[in-house]
Write a protein that binds this DNA or RNA. Structure first.
Length: 851
RNA sequence: GGGCGCGUAGCUCAGCGGAAGAGCAACGGCCUUACAAGCCGUCGGUCGCAGGUUCGAAUCCUGCCGCGCCCA
């Protein structure tokens, strides 16, 4: 035990010991029942860790430490998410390269010293290698931070979402979905981001207010008597007029009923289109009759499907109009006009069309600005287009009521902390409107592990999907060969071609329990950890990560991936805004850990209720530091008084005050245990902390003299045994939240790590005789009154008190009498008078303190 | 527009059907042989607003107002 205890240096010292001793090593001989397994969220390594990470990962660590102390073998791995756009961009910028899957692997490739102006195209395999090199550095920094933060992770069970095992597991799970018909390939209208040139899934969409304008445009028809009659529609996207396939109004709309079944000709291009009825047309929107184009929005897709309309796509995947004039435009004038638009961006095409319409007089009245919600890719900055493309999907219940019901049932089976978060899941499942699009037209990621046969003309035969044999996974179809084919058959008529797409990052992240547990690679390990116990995560990714993980597990294992999920809140800055880099209010976590000490920062994290957004509060960290310091000092004091070694002997606890103390502590143990069992670390900490300050300020002061041996031997031994027993319990109760200081003070007098010591049991403080809690209450009350009297008279706490009179009910006086020697010693009281009061009220009169 | 959550002391938050709480801050004190990075004490609230249920409401119900998140 050091002369002057300090918090400085505890992190380095104990982190090293824990690593050397293997304190948190997972015992893989443990059976599933003995294991507590955590599906740790793999942080994105290309970003930087912020305070929010420290906050939520600390919550998980507290639970893991608690479970370990309860005797579980904790499987607590750490993964790194380096699969996806953020890493792709970072590798591109850092090395000045770009991924080009058609290129062959170059084993001797070294990136340029400094990234040049032109990005060097390299094969996917080379790109993945660079990613692994670059992220290795990031991961080292992350690991250092996590170790300093005190996460009790077993670092030998790590993974990266782009490493070979993760790729193999991701591809294997996907191929098994294909085999069972749960994944399928389909040519369909797809939401498309023209900047990233990739398809986008429902989970990646967001609506943004976008400024547009209503254009009133004339289509040309004939009235019942055959005379020319114009039909006016209103559109915000006049550039889609060449893609128009029908005009559509509501079946009940009397204005347009005469037109249903007739045809009209489009302005400028003179293409004949039918006028049709469909209930999705909104009577009070615009003119009440809409132009259906392939495809302007999702309603167009619905009409196209349900009314069996032709596909007249004019917008390319680069966001420009087709360079070839479409064959459905037949009039000479129409084809001339289209040529002026060919290859133009959507924006330019709109300007030109509006100019043409103005010239021909087919644009009527003023253009009226309107702001309306438009779908965007969450990472993009241009509105999404809808294009037809071949894509892979996984059935998720979006088009299948049975699967949807099963997914809702899984959500009900899962235990949510806090419980109300389940609503978000159910809302999402109920709102799904299509299957999960998992193929992405990006270059970096887990390749879609299939090839396609080519026909005699070299065209893809999408129904003839070639799959790899399981033992060759992971594969990259752009360089590996399908079984039974040779390299010279690649991309030639009658041969094959590899799928160039990659899987959505969530298609891999949805398998983190399988990746961490090494499903299909080490099935023995997997059987010991799966289904897992806990998925901790942010509530913002319930619809993506949580949902997709439940789905994959449901499809592959017919079970939940984990029994519990704990949703953590966000960190808000003092202005109640979510902390973000752009606001410049991000604090580096390492700086905080250094400034306050890891235990103090963890204390702040633990004071945030599960699922509740929490203010970033340096004040709480100061309080945490004080608490850690207090635990050092109180431990030092108690051990300095001299407590018996080994297991505390509770038969020595004979004084009523001591028994009452242990009884109260037992209640705290019970409360903390129940709270932690329910994932409420905040309540557990609060109960422990509140008791601890009371223990230090009142109980320690009361028994100090007796513990020093100033009275009789029995009283001294009772106090010392109580102090030892209470300290042993308190150090363990604090261990999950304050692992460093708890380990430090434990090491002063106990064997082994406090983190492997058994969690306090409610029976371990039971004394031979029943405790009277009133003894502690009254003694505490009276000593408080004495302090108040001294404080009000601005006297030293050491001032002697001439006389003390206590009026109270007989039972209270009896209780006080049991602790009177302690009270007198602590208050420095000479004479005491106990008076039975008429009303039972406790009244303490402190007479004449003398300086 | 829908779902969910939140409005309690100057600040951060507990309490969620039986006399309004904690910590921080503020203020006044105390060198007290574990701790002055400590300790003791004091001040401080129409529990967002309006109704309702109840013997009793911060707590349950309804409606408003405000804030946040998720989804349209």
């Amino acid at each position: 035990m050091p002369e002057k205890p300090t918090l400085d240096g505890l992190e380095d010292r104990w982190a090293r010991v824990w690593e050397d001793e293997g304190t948190y090593a997972f015992d893989r001989t443990a059976t599933r029942e003995q294991v507590y397994s955590v599906d740790t969220p793999p942080p994105t390594v290309s970003g930087s860790l912020h305070v929010g990470h420290v906050f939520s990962y600390t919550h998980t660590d507290i639970v893991a430490r608690f479970q370990r102390m309860r005797g579980k073998h904790v499987f607590y791995p750490m993964g790194w998410d380096d699969n996806g756009l953020p890493t792709e961009r970072r590798v591109q910028n850092f090395y000045g390269v770009r991924c080009e899957p058609s290129l062959p692997y170059d084993p001797d490739f070294t990136p340029p010293e400094k990234p040049g102006k032109q990005q060097v195209p390299i094969s996917r395999k080379n790109f993945v290698e660079l990613c692994e090199t670059l992220t290795a550095e990031d991961e080292k920094a992350f690991e250092e931070l996590w170790r300093r933060n005190g996460l009790s992770v077993d670092w030998s069970h790590g993974y990266q979402t782009i490493d070979a095992r993760a790729r193999a597991i991701s591809q294997r799970a996907f191929l098994r979905n294909v085999e069972r018909g749960q994944a399928y390939v389909s040519m369909a209208p797809t939401l498309w981001d023209v900047t990233f040139r990739t398809a986008v899934a429902q989970a990646e969409l967001e609506d943004r207010e976008h400024t547009g304008a209503w254009h009133r445009v004339a289509y040309h028809g004939a009235d019942s008597s055959g005379h020319d009659a114009d039909v006016f529609i209103e559109t915000t996207r006049p550039e889609l007029i060449p893609a128009c396939v029908a005009l559509i109004a509501h079946p009940d709309d009397e204005r347009y009923q005469p037109l249903f079944g007739t045809t009209v000709r489009s302005p400028l291009f003179d293409v004949e289109v039918p006028v049709l009825a469909h209930p999705a047309a909104e009577m009070d929107r615009g003119a009440g009759i809409a132009m259906c184009c392939t495809f302007g929005d999702l309603t167009d897709v619905q009409w196209w499907r349900e009314l069996d309309l032709p596909n007249r796509t004019v917008i390319n995947r680069d966001g420009r109009l087709l360079r070839e004039t479409p064959d459905w435009i037949t009039s000479e004038l129409g084809r001339q006009r289209y040529e002026e638009l060919a290859g133009a961006t959507v924006h330019t095409a709109k300007e030109r069309i509006v100019a043409m319409l103005t010239e021909t007089g087919e644009l009527v009245g003023d253009v009226r600005p309107v702001t309306r919600p438009v779908k965007f890719f969450e990472k993009g900055d241009k509105p999404l287009e809808i294009v037809s493309s071949r894509q892979w999907y996984i059935r998720n219940g979006g088009r299948d009521a049975t699967v949807r019901d099963e997914m809702i049932a899984r959500g009900q089976e899962l235990q949510w902390h806090p419980g109300y978060m389940r609503h978000r899941y159910e809302d999402w499942v109920r709102g799904l409107n299509g299957d999960w699009l998992v193929s992405r037209q990006r270059f970096f990621g887990v390749p879609v592990p299939v090839w396609y046969r080519l026909d005699a003309d070299g065209e893809v035969l999408p129904d003839e999907v070639l799959t790899p044999s399981d033992d060759t996974l992971p594969v990259d179809p752009s360089t590996d060969l399908p079984p039974g084919f040779t390299a010279d058959q690649r991309d030639v008529p009658g041969g094959f071609t590899g799928d160039r797409d990659i899987l959505d990052t969530w298609a891999t992240s949805s398998l983190t329990p399988q990746i961490a547990g090494l499903w299909s690679i080490d099935d023995d390990l997997f059987s010991r950890v799966f289904p897992m116990d806990l998925r901790p995560q942010g509530h913002d990714i319930i619809r993506t990560w949580l949902f997709s993980t439940v789905l994959r597990s449901h499809l592959e294992h017919d079970s939940l991936p984990w029994a519990h999920t704990a949703l953590s809140g966000w960190i808000l800055d003092p202005d109640r805004k979510k902390m973000s880099k752009s606001k410049g209010n991000v604090v580096t976590p390492m700086d905080l850990l250094v400034e306050f000490g890891s235990d103090a920062v963890r204390y702040w994290a633990a004071s945030g209720r599960p699922g509740v957004d929490t203010a970033f509060d340096r004040g709480q960290m100061k309080v945490g530091r004080r608490l850690a310091m207090k635990l050092l000092n109180a431990s030092k004091f108690i051990l300095g008084v001299g407590v018996p070694a080994g297991e505390p002997d509770l038969t020595a606890v004979t004084m009523p005050l001591d028994r009452a103390l242990l009884a109260r502590l037992t209640e705290v143990v019970e409360k903390a245990t129940t709270a932690l069992d329910g994932y409420d670390y905040a309540v557990a900490l609060e109960a422990t902390e509140q008791f601890f300050w009371f223990f230090c300020d009142d109980y320690l002061e009361l028994v100090k003299s007796r513990a020093y041996g100033e009275f009789d031997e029995a009283g001294r031994d009772s106090a010392r045994a109580t102090l030892a027993a209470a300290l042993r319990v308190l150090q363990r109760l604090f261990a999950p939240v304050l692992p460093f200081v708890a380990e430090e003070v434990w090491s002063w007098w106990q064997e082994g790590s406090v983190h492997c010591a058994p969690w306090p049991d409610i029976h371990e403080l039971a004394t031979s005789a029943e405790a009277d809690p009133q003894v502690l209450e009254v003694a505490s009350d009276v000593i408080g009154s004495i302090r108040r009297a001294k404080s009000e008279q601005k006297l030293s706490i050491r001032t002697e008190v001439e006389s003390l009179s206590v009026q109270a009910a007989p039972a209270a006086l009896e209780a006080l009498r049991a602790a009177l020697a302690d009270v007198r010693a602590a208050g420095r009281v000479r004479d005491v008078e106990l008076v039975v009061s008429a009303d039972g009220e406790l009244v303490t009169t402190v007479g004449a303190p003398t300086g």
